[in-house]
Design a protein around this nucleic acid. Structure first.
Lengths: 199, 199
DNA sequence: CAGACTAGTAATCAACTGATAACATGTCAA
DNA sequence: TTGACATGTTATCAGTTGATTACTAGTCTG
């Protein structure tokens, strides 16, 4: 028999961070409906009721996770817009944004949570949140670079393609399909190595 | 008391079509995990066990719905590729594909089912199916138009943006947000009227 | 018209889910 | 040290879900 271990406790904010990180991984993998609060709890190493009470409800937990993800994504883009602003209608000016995206690929969960949030638009709460963040993203691109709507549209479209390919786990499976491989190389460029083939 | 009504029955294939159409609407709205077999059954006007037994399982039902959607999407694009093939590296050559997409907007469920299938890539069965169809789509674009990988990538990226905006219900809510409105107009062009504002 | 087949339903179930309530334990200020 | 509060857990629950079984009724053929 081991003697009773003296349990040390965590501050609420610390634990909250832990749960949010776990929830981010879980939601990134299986989306809002595909993730149970119990799955989040197990991933965070706490009890399921604690997760619910900490955030009030599953939907509020997702909203928090989604907000954080979007906030970080916009923050990651932020410093790179300056380079684009000089000549925003030129294709080449946007190349640095690819670097920004490569940074985001280091924590894919952010992009996957974004995508799951966007495709849960039929849910009224999530839908309103998603549209609001999409609006902020578009506005940030336009105002920071001074580009045309068309340029901003192209940038977002490329992002949506990359997110979709990530959600489909194309990087992990590209080797099994030449056509998919070609598309992946074309879409991710050199960053593919960082993105896939870890598994 | 009404006398017992003589019930007429439907052929299995007829009923199957009905259920597939109902499932398509339901899955388009709420995705794979967000849709219960009971919801599909109610939408189709049949009992829940009948839906399950007719397709074996929920996942096989989704696979059927997804297959049909992708098949129809590719068929819709098919005849329009000829126009692109003449000069596939020219932006303007691709304009007719916008018309093809407008046709697809008449039954948005196809595009939404596609999107939900793509973003359910973490599910092994759905993921494999999704990647296979993405591969087919890419291959069809390349071989039918003779375009470069980059051109095909752009076409798919634009499609993913439109699908995402649809899933977010942007057309229905664009009026509430000028930035979103601008993006929607830029992305959907004239087809926006057909797409949104019905509600 | 008999019997085999087909098109369906009602009843039921075990597993899961989000949420609540009651309780236990660590921590810190007075 | 004590008591108030913050950090957690266990027990529990009602509703939902996908699936199975058993049953009913229309339809078609010989």
């Amino acid at each position: 028999m081991a003697p009773p271990v003296k349990q040390t406790r965590m501050s609420a904010t610390e634990r909250r961070e832990l749960v949010l990180a776990a929830a981010s991984r879980a939601f990134a993998r299986d989306g809002y409906h595909g993730t149970s609060t119990d799955a989040v709890a197990r991933e965070a190493g706490v009890s399921q009721p604690y997760v619910v009470r900490m955030f009030g409800s599953k939907s509020r937990l997702f909203a928090d996770v989604f907000d954080r993800a979007m906030s970080r994504i916009l923050d990651t883009f932020e410093p790179w817009f300056d380079g684009v602003a000089a000549d925003p209608e030129n294709d080449e000016s946007w190349l640095p944004m690819g670097v920004a995206y490569t940074q985001l690929l280091e924590d894919r969960d952010l992009l996957l949570v974004m995508m799951h949030g966007f495709t849960s638009g039929a849910n009224p709460e999530i839908g309103a949140l998603a549209r609001d963040w999409m609006s902020r993203l578009y506005t940030q691109i336009r105002t920071r670079t001074g580009c045309s709507p068309e340029r901003a549209r192209i940038f977002i479209a490329n992002g949506m393609l990359l997110n979709t390919l990530l959600a489909m786990q194309v990087p992990e499976h590209a080797g099994q399909d030449p056509a998919l491989e070609e598309l992946a190389v074309c879409a991710f460029g050199n960053t593919l190595d960082a993105a896939g083939s870890e598994n």
